[in-house]
Design a binder for these strands. Structure first.
Lengths: 187, 187
DNA sequence: TCACTAACGCAAATATTTTGCTTTAGTGAT
DNA sequence: ATCACTAAAGCAAAATATTTGCGTTAGTGA
């Protein structure tokens, strides 16, 4: 009756996707990027390699897929009492994760793949989390902060340092940029 | 007598490196990322595959290497008469290149590989070019612009948009950020 | 000119990826 | 429930790509 939106998302597909994703995460943790091969993943997930190749195309796309899933926030940002402190706390945590070894690996997987879908989702999650913080602040009667400005003034420079300068932003560095954000919105 | 700095950079190595790099560029242009395989590159460069594997490890690292080479500026920034117009002109050109399809492919190759050496060089080239602009301005008696601020205010946000939002920055967008840079240094 | 050895070539051994065909199991209609 | 339909998985053979051991070539320094 209704057009099936996804052709056949039924139980089996989902089960296999879950098994494969889990296999990737496990192998990635146990051994690094080495030992992370399609046949190895297939074996661990109790699936044939051809299933993986047909569904994901190649290892890079599978890894990007898994990385995006892991990037997806499982918890809403902590409520620390005020919009500004919520946002700062969340940013600190976010960039701590992004500059860790696993975080960097996820970024590599996400950015190293053609078709920006994965990277786009990454940006989407970020905005979504900030949106939650904004809405909570709004409920408190606080002035929301422009998400565009947050990415422009705080997120982008930190990401640039992680990606291109191999730096691990200190909490002070994050606070400094946050101050710039705040003062630019106050003005 | 003197410790050999690079083990054996002599003629043959260089020749082969050049042949392989050229083969990569040619194949990349003729066919896209498909058809860009180590054996294909080896054939085109008239080299055995094992040479490539032994020297570069795998395709990803070879591509990153080639990408870095292509990112390396072959010309100094144009002299347009003033430091500010030099910088703006150079930024516009730089981001036009970076948001093009080949530019994005290079960024993928550079960022998608472990060991940040490639990405670091990318940032290095950028700073180097800005440095040239600064020095030329200095010779004219102009006030140089802090490179750190340029990357923070202009470069990072644009790069973020290219990488995570799949946007192609317009010239106006670049100019707008440039204005912010200028006003923040004037203040 | 010569001894030395890093880097290459070659080819056999492995490992991965692709592909044609078969089987399984959700899905919607009866 | 049952059944026809078909997307997605399994299997196994073929095609490709990667690794490796060993012989050869050609820069390098004495």
């Amino acid at each position: 009756m209704i057009n099936k939106p996804t052709p056949r998302p039924g139980g089996r597909s989902a089960r296999i996707q879950a098994a494969v994703h889990q296999a990737v995460r496990e192998l990635q943790q146990e051994q690094g990027r080495a030992g992370l091969t399609v046949p190895a993943i297939a074996t661990r997930a109790e699936v044939t390699p051809s299933t993986i190749y047909r569904r994901w195309g190649d290892l890079a796309q599978l890894l990007a897929d898994v990385a995006v899933e892991q990037l997806q926030p499982e918890q809403p940002p902590a409520d620390t009492g005020s919009l500004r402190s919520d946002l700062l706390a969340w940013l600190v945590e976010y960039f701590e994760e992004m500059s860790s070894a696993p975080g960097r690996a996820m970024l590599r997987d996400v950015l190293g793949t053609e078709g920006h879908t994965s990277a786009g989702k990454c940006d989407g999650f970020l905005r979504q989390q900030i949106e939650v913080i904004n809405e909570r602040g709004l409920a408190r009667g606080e002035q929301p902060i422009d998400i565009e400005l947050v990415t422009q003034i705080v997120v982008a420079p930190l990401m640039y340092r992680i990606l291109f300068a191999n730096e691990t932003p200190t909490e002070q560095a994050i606070e400094a940029l946050f101050e710039q954000l705040v003062s630019s919105t106050d003005a």
